Simulated assay, not measured.
Amino acid sequence: MSRKIAGFLILLGVFMVFEWVNLGFNLQDGHPTSFYVVHGILIGVNLILAIVLGVIGWKGLRGARDR
């Protein structure tokens, strides 16, 4: 994996964490419970994906440095 792609994956993971945590804090009261359940699941899944992308990018960056 090239350094550019690895850096992109790391930046994408950081952006996703920022975006979804920000959304979680900005949810307003007054919605039905199902709204919060669905958005909680979306936030959780996207945070997991962000962590996976960050780890792949980090390993790719370290692998590119070792070559």
Rank of each mutant, 00 (worst) to 15 (best):
R62V: 05
D66P: 00
G40P: 04
L11E: 11
W20I: 02
M16S: 10
I41V: 12
V14R: 09
F25G: 13
G13C: 07
V21M: 12
L61N: 07
Y36K: 04
L42D: 06
R65Y: 15
G40C: 10
G54R: 00
F35M: 07
S2I: 02
I41M: 06
L23A: 10
H39M: 13
K4W: 05
L12A: 10
P32S: 11
F8K: 05
L53S: 10
H39Q: 13
G7E: 08
G60K: 03
G63N: 15
D29F: 05
R3N: 01
L27F: 15
R67V: 13
R62W: 06
F8E: 01
G24L: 14
K4G: 10
G63E: 14
F25P: 00
I51C: 05
V37F: 04
L42V: 11
I10R: 04
G7H: 04
N26C: 01
H39S: 05
I48K: 02
N26A: 09
V21E: 07
M1L: 13
A64S: 08
K4P: 02
R67D: 09
I48E: 04
G44Q: 01
F25K: 05
F8S: 12
G60L: 07
N26K: 06
L61P: 07
V21C: 08
M16Y: 11
N26H: 10
K4S: 13
I48V: 14
G44K: 00
W58C: 04
G24N: 14
K59G: 03
M16H: 06
V38W: 09
V52L: 10
I43E: 10
N22C: 03
F18W: 15
G24I: 12
L11H: 09
D29R: 07
L23E: 10
R62Q: 08
L12F: 14
F25N: 02
K4T: 07
E19P: 00
K4V: 12
R67M: 08
G57D: 07
G60Q: 04
N22Q: 12
T33V: 10
V55D: 03
